[in-house]
Simulated scan of single mutants.
Amino acid sequence: MKSLITIGLLILSNAFMTLAWYGHLKFKEMKWSQSLGLISIILISWGIALFEYLLQVPANRIGFKEYGGPFSLVQLKVIQEVITLTVFVVFSLLFFKNETFRINHLIGFVFLVLAVYFIFKK
């Protein structure tokens, strides 16, 4: 159960992180944001990223072995990276229609999934 909670929180956390890091690149298409300066954009992104931290920190504490969770620190990091890339690919394909997902991206992603396999292999 702790592993599912950890992974769920990491997915939600990464959704906010991706929105904070890359969502502002779409702001130019929104009328309300066209006159905002860089500092305003940074502050908005920080506000979004706050939700990432509110989910990321509990995910790591719940999932970490030393707090009774099922994952080692290395396992948590590798899970995090694969989730980050998965969320990013979905986000970029949905919100940035001019981006493409090519075969070399797929091959790289397969290698990352293999990294998860080897990290968890005993």
Rank of each mutant, 00 (worst) to 15 (best):
residue 84 T to P: 00
residue 20 A to W: 07
residue 23 G to I: 08
residue 66 E to Q: 12
residue 77 K to P: 01
residue 40 S to E: 15
residue 2 K to H: 13
residue 1 M to V: 13
residue 109 F to L: 12
residue 19 L to R: 02
residue 54 L to N: 01
residue 105 H to D: 13
residue 14 N to P: 02
residue 88 F to P: 00
residue 42 I to Y: 14
residue 19 L to S: 04
residue 93 L to C: 03
residue 87 V to N: 01
residue 77 K to H: 11
residue 28 K to C: 03
residue 110 V to H: 06
residue 65 K to Y: 09
residue 122 K to P: 15
residue 13 S to F: 03
residue 60 N to W: 08
residue 65 K to S: 13
residue 102 R to Q: 13
residue 43 L to T: 02
residue 39 I to P: 00
residue 69 G to H: 08
residue 100 T to C: 00
residue 90 V to F: 11
residue 46 W to P: 00
residue 80 Q to D: 15
residue 49 A to E: 03
residue 67 Y to R: 08
residue 5 I to A: 14
residue 95 F to C: 10
residue 12 L to C: 03
residue 29 E to K: 15
residue 95 F to V: 11
residue 66 E to G: 08
residue 50 L to G: 04
residue 39 I to S: 10
residue 62 I to G: 06
residue 21 W to K: 02
residue 117 Y to V: 15
residue 20 A to T: 07
residue 2 K to I: 07
residue 121 K to M: 12
residue 113 V to C: 14
residue 75 Q to N: 07
residue 82 V to P: 00
residue 3 S to P: 00
residue 102 R to Y: 09
residue 103 I to Y: 13
residue 42 I to P: 02
residue 87 V to E: 03
residue 6 T to N: 01
residue 42 I to M: 12
residue 37 G to F: 04
residue 92 S to C: 05
residue 97 K to L: 11
residue 16 F to H: 01
residue 40 S to K: 14
residue 59 A to V: 04
residue 116 V to K: 06
residue 45 S to F: 06
residue 66 E to W: 06
residue 70 P to N: 13
residue 15 A to P: 02
residue 19 L to K: 04
residue 117 Y to L: 14
residue 61 R to I: 11
residue 26 K to H: 06
residue 5 I to N: 05
residue 41 I to Y: 01
residue 98 N to G: 04
residue 35 S to A: 12
residue 38 L to N: 09
residue 83 I to N: 05
residue 105 H to R: 14
residue 120 F to N: 12
residue 27 F to L: 15
residue 82 V to D: 05
residue 47 G to I: 04
residue 80 Q to A: 09
residue 75 Q to K: 09
